[in-house]
Structures are given as structure tokens and as C-alpha cells.
Computed example of a mutant assay.
Amino acid sequence: MEENDVVKTVGVGVISWTLAFVMARRIFCKYSFEFSNRLVSTAHATLAVTLASLSVQDWKCPLCPMASTSTPAQMQTLAVSLSYLIYDVVCCLFGGRVGLDNTVHHLISIAGITAGLYYQKCGSEMVGALWVTEMSSPFLHLREALKELGYRDTAVNLAADILFASIFTVARMVAGPYITYVTLSANNPPMIKAMGLGLQLVSAFWFLKIVRMMKYKLKKRTMTKHGINHASKLE
């Protein structure tokens, strides 16, 4: 994939994600700015996982060949995700959702993918990392969208929370460390190694927050259930 093709893909991608957001805002005007952005984010996560899956050269060894020249399919997958990340950074600024952890995640991801596209190397490892990081994203956005749709503190919302936490844990805390180890062990550029390690550290930080969130949700659910049962006995 030529450099001009990468730039064109990123440019068209940024415009496309922006137009998708504008359309979502027009269609779902009764809901929040963040609701529309989450719809776009869900679309990207689904597309990213699909493209990443299609770009795998050998499913018997998904990360092979390691530290190799990226294929055109891998370059395209990374360019599409880079365009989304650029869009999302701007969208977060306009939406007022600029947290430290989210900003660090965006910067690491943008720097890492840009390095991968520049060196045209480490395509297998980077596409693998993209696959595991985006696997849980639709469920993250689902649990937040359910709250806005009026399903906060319901069994449906709790099920979405558990599903998201489970997929995140397996993807980012089981598969993620292995991909990070492979990336650091192979003969990859230092910039890519640093970004891979940084992304895993952010994932670990988010994992701790998710564990605390699930403890709180399950405890709250249990207390509510017991409170209802106690009230029924009093009646």
C-alpha cells in the first residue's frame, strides 16, 4: 500500500466518520451528543474487528509472521482505525469528554498506528492488538446506551455490564499481555514496542476500574434484592 493511499484512506475515513456522526445526531436528535458518538464508535469497532480478521494471514498462528512487512490489507485496516481515532479525539473535545486515561489511550494508539504505517512493519502484531482492543468496545457502548434509553439499574443493564467486563478481561488481560510480549520480543522498531507496552498498561488500569465497578454493581444489586425481599416479608 503506497504512502499516498494511506493518507487518502485516513483522510476519507475522517470525513466518513464525521458524516456518520452528523447523520446519527440528526436521526437521534432526542438523545445526547455522546449517544451519537457511541453509535459511530460501535460501527468502527465492528468494522475494525472484521477488517482485522480478514487481514490475518494464517489462523493457525494469527500473529505470524512476526516483525514482518505489513500486507496491504493490514495497512488498510490500521489506516481506517487511525482515521477513526483522529475523528474521536476531535469529537471528545467538542463533547467535553477529555479524561486523562482516555487522552493517553488515544495518543498512544495514534502514535503506535502511525509508527506502524510509517515503518510498514509489525502488521500482524498490530492488527492482533487492534482485534483484542476493539472486541469489547461494542459492549462498552451498549451498556452506556442502555442507561440513556432508560434501562439504568436493570437486569438488562447488569447483563451488559457483565458481558463487557468478561470480554474485556479475556481480550485485554489474557490475549493482550501475550501480544505485548510477542511485540516486545520480536525485532520491531523501539517506537512500536513502547506504544505496545503503553497500551497494555492503559488496559491494566482500565481493568482495575472495571473490577471496582463490577464489585459495586453486584453489591448494589444484592443489597437491592435483599431490601425488596425484606420489604415483602414485612408486608
Rank of each mutant, 00 (worst) to 15 (best):
56 V>K: 07
176 G>Q: 03
176 G>F: 05
186 A>T: 13
28 F>W: 07
75 M>V: 13
33 F>H: 12
141 H>W: 03
224 T>I: 04
83 S>K: 01
206 W>G: 00
76 Q>L: 15
90 V>Y: 15
149 L>P: 01
103 T>K: 04
202 V>G: 03
90 V>P: 07
40 V>F: 10
133 T>M: 11
125 E>I: 07
88 D>V: 12
203 S>W: 10
24 A>Y: 02
134 E>F: 10
23 M>W: 08
51 L>I: 07
144 E>V: 08
133 T>R: 07
69 T>P: 08
28 F>K: 04
174 V>C: 15
37 N>G: 14
33 F>Y: 10
196 G>W: 02
18 T>D: 11
175 A>Q: 04
202 V>R: 01
232 S>P: 02
150 G>L: 09
109 S>C: 00
6 V>T: 06
190 P>F: 12
222 T>W: 15
193 K>E: 06
214 M>V: 01
139 F>W: 08
2 E>R: 05
234 L>V: 05
71 T>V: 09
184 L>S: 06
69 T>S: 09
235 E>L: 14
142 L>E: 05
76 Q>C: 11
163 L>Q: 05
219 K>H: 06
186 A>Q: 13
212 R>M: 09
132 V>N: 07
94 F>G: 09
215 K>F: 09
202 V>M: 09
174 V>P: 04
106 H>P: 01
37 N>S: 11
168 F>P: 00
84 Y>D: 06
26 R>H: 00
166 S>W: 01
36 S>E: 01
91 C>H: 15
101 D>F: 15
89 V>D: 02
117 L>H: 06
60 K>E: 10
185 S>M: 14
57 Q>W: 12
200 Q>A: 01
17 W>D: 06
97 R>C: 15
205 F>Y: 14
25 R>Q: 07
223 M>G: 01
73 A>D: 14
216 Y>C: 11
59 W>C: 10
51 L>S: 02
211 V>D: 05
60 K>P: 07
91 C>R: 13
229 N>M: 12
2 E>Y: 02
145 A>N: 10
200 Q>K: 00
18 T>A: 02
101 D>G: 14
28 F>G: 10
72 P>A: 04
32 S>K: 06
201 L>H: 12
163 L>T: 14
7 V>W: 07
118 Y>S: 13
107 L>Y: 01
232 S>R: 14
135 M>Y: 13
21 F>Y: 15
179 I>S: 01
29 C>V: 06
28 F>Y: 12
217 K>Q: 08
142 L>N: 01
11 G>V: 03
141 H>K: 07
15 I>W: 13
192 I>A: 02
57 Q>C: 10
54 L>N: 07
135 M>K: 15
52 A>V: 14
136 S>L: 05
77 T>F: 03
125 E>H: 04
221 R>C: 11
62 P>L: 15
106 H>N: 00
52 A>D: 08
194 A>Y: 12
69 T>K: 13
31 Y>M: 02
217 K>L: 05
123 G>V: 03
17 W>I: 00
118 Y>H: 13
138 P>C: 12
65 P>V: 09
85 L>F: 14
176 G>E: 07
95 G>D: 08
122 C>E: 11
97 R>L: 15
117 L>R: 10
221 R>K: 12
165 A>V: 04
